[in-house]
Design a protein around this nucleic acid. Structure first.
Length: 570
RNA sequence: GCGGUCGUAGCUCAAUUGGAUAGAGCAACAGGCUACGAACUUGUAGGUUGGGGGUUCGAGUCCCUCCGACCGCACCA
């Protein structure tokens, strides 16, 4: 666990000084042994101060003393040894074995100054050189993206942004399942729709992809090729139409991703991996490691060696690689290019986790592959559960939802809960475009600040941006807001470390809430007090930068103004 | 049957990975605009964290065991 640090803090960082002083004091109170590491964390309850250390609790057993008493002595000795603490801390109190620390206002004033200089890059990590592959989305290319995939896209893109913010080099990728029988099924389905344009009774394949969404494709096919496939033999039209449909649907999926603000660095074709020999290379690597055996004419991977419940076929007895075989190759390739690979899979791929993570170990890189599961999403409309099935032809596409609620509301909503919690999406709420959606709360905060700045005398704003008079920020609400802004770097790091974008959304809400509360109590523009106005303009300017930064990581716009739509007549 | 994920306020979800009195939003109730945007804000109410046991200074979090929901158990993808 890493001790809490505050980015951009001045050299005489109160927390760092306190940390060293407490460590020295604690060390003098316990018998010789391992060095004492003092960690601070922000307590949930603000009444316990800005930061708290549990060092006394952890040392209690070693020192054979009551933690409460130990904490008291650590504080005493630290103050005696480090007089500067009296300036840096406004208080340090032992309570219940914890040591609760409150930093002096100057600390938070300095944080505001730092944010003014660095903007939304406040706390951005220097490049670490770590290369990470992040795969998510990857729907079958047999239809449009559905609402459910919106969740994965939002989660994945926010995680990618957070990882990049912390200094990692991220490759966002999508595997296109363009090999295998589903392409033929797709080709037959489109062919049937194509024939049905003239012969409504032409039979639709039993296992074909139902719904009307392939009809426009069939029409495009006829516009392009006319009647040429009607009399053609199947071995001519099947590959041609399969390819045509695949290309069209992939392009459609890519367009939806782009509209949703999700950019992919790599669209990896599964077919291309087969054709380039990549699959054979990956399997050969495993064979060289003694993890492959032949049985019944097929090629098997010793998956049980890595906790899977049975060994897995990678090449069928007819010589065609399995889906897992392709994944062996894909992850062999990922690990050659990057230091680790993260995947977000849908709940139906659940049984696949062990097999995929095992590949990291198999390739000699234990822990290098991490699979996270996006739990199921239940859709609800008017209090009733909506069952959506691609097979049954009842679909709700991501594009349809975006038409209804817009990209911002959807992106924010989908990261309000983490991947591992099952989620219920209330469609009637979304369709209402109601201000219930928390994204408007955050955006409103940003727009409100923009409005203040439009109203502010330009020379005052200019002085504010230069960070003048920050020492006037002493009001409780001012300091509370500044404290919140200071958390930004650590929040983003936590999002990246725990792959938990919900924290980003929660944090954005907290910043907006602290701003709104400040706004109620503290007037920013006050002609009678120009210097205080400058200080407060500086604070809200910093808050605006952090709000914009958090929203940007979530893929959401930070508007300068918001226009309320008129309430629809009842 | 075997295995996995999940179970937190009426609803939707959090909880800094083992920390203090489990928090937000929505819904409910009662207040606040002749000053910078009321898409805001203040307060009230709402909980045996599915049940039980264990580990320890300390458990929503870790272990065991029941209950329940979902999912997986292919030479499909």
């Amino acid at each position: 666990m890493n001790p809490t640090t505050i980015d951009g803090a001045p050299a005489a960082d109160g927390l760092a000084v306190a940390s060293r002083a407490f460590a020295a004091a604690a060390a003098s109170l316990v018998p010789e042994g391992e060095p004492v590491l003092v960690q601070f964390e922000a307590p949930r309850n603000p009444a316990f101060g800005d930061y708290a250390s549990n060092v006394a609790l952890q040392l209690a057993k070693r020192a054979r003393r009551a933690p409460q008493q130990l904490a008291g002595e650590i504080v005493e000795r630290a103050y005696a040894a480090e007089p500067a603490l009296r300036e840096l801390l406004s208080e340090a109190v032992p309570v219940g074995g914890f040591i609760n620390v409150r930093l002096a206002p100057a600390h938070w004033q300095n944080v505001v100054g730092t944010i003014l200089r660095e903007g939304a890059d406040f706390g951005r990590g220097a490049p670490t050189g770590e290369r990470i592959s992040l795969e998510f989305g990857s729907a079958n290319p047999t239809g449009p993206l559905l609402v459910v995939q919106g969740r994965t896209l939002s989660l994945g893109d926010s995680i990618a942004n957070a990882l990049r913010f912390t200094g990692a080099e991220v490759t966002v990728e999508w595997i296109v399942n363009d090999a295998g029988s589903q392409v033929e099924t797709l080709g037959r389905s489109v062919y049937a729709r194509y024939r049905q344009l003239d012969e409504p009774d032409f039979p639709f394949p039993e296992d074909g992809y139902p719904g009307d969404y392939l009809v426009p494709l069939a029409e495009r096919l006829r516009a392009r090729d006319g009647e040429r496939w009607v009399a053609a033999p199947e071995d001519e039209w099947l590959p041609a139409i399969g390819r045509f449909a695949l290309d069209a649907l992939i392009a459609e999926q890519q367009a939806t991703c782009a509209r949703f603000g999700v950019h992919y660095d790599r669209w990896q074709s599964e077919k291309a991996m087969h054709e380039s020999g990549a699959v054979e290379r990956g399997i050969a690597d495993l064979r060289a490691r003694g993890l492959i055996f032949d049985h019944d004419g097929a090629v098997w991977m010793r998956a049980t060696q890595f906790g899977d419940d049975k060994d897995r076929v990678v090449v069928r007895s007819d010589g065609r690689p399995t889906y897992y075989g392709a994944d062996v190759a894909y992850h062999f390739d990922k690990l050659e290019r990057t230091d680790r690979a993260i995947l977000i899979l849908g709940p139906d791929h659940h049984g696949y986790i062990a097999r995929l993570e095992a590949l990291g170990t198999a390739f000699g890189r234990p822990g290098a592959i991490k699979v996270m599961l996006a739990q199921q999403m239940t859709l609800e409309r008017d209090g009733e559960i909506v069952s959506l099935s691609k097979r049954a032809g009842t679909v709700l596409t991501l594009d349809e939802i975006l038409d209804e609620v817009g990209v911002d509301a959807a992106r924010f909503f989908f990261i309000l809960s983490n991947a591992d919690s099952p989620m219920t999406f209330d469609l009637s709420l979304a369709v209402r475009q109601s201000s219930d959606n928390p994204v408007y709360y955050v955006q409103y905060g940003h727009a409100r600040i923009a409005s203040i700045e439009r109203k502010a005398p330009p020379e005052l704003l200019a002085r504010a941006v230069r960070g003048e008079h920050l020492d006037l920020l002493r009001h409780e609400k001012e300091l509370a807001l500044a404290r919140r802004l200071a958390e930004f770097p650590e929040v983003v790091r936590a999002v990246a470390a725990h792959l938990a974008p919900a924290r980003l959304a929660r944090y954005a809400q907290a910043v907006a809430s602290d701003f709104h509360q400040f706004y109620m109590d503290c007037r920013v523009l006050d002609e009678a007090e120009p210097e205080l106005s400058v200080a407060r303009l500086a604070l809200v300017h910093a808050a605006k930068a952090i709000l914009a930064g958090a929203l940007r990581l979530a893929g959401v716009n930070a508007p300068e103004r918001m226009d309320r739509e008129p309430e629809p007549a009842a």
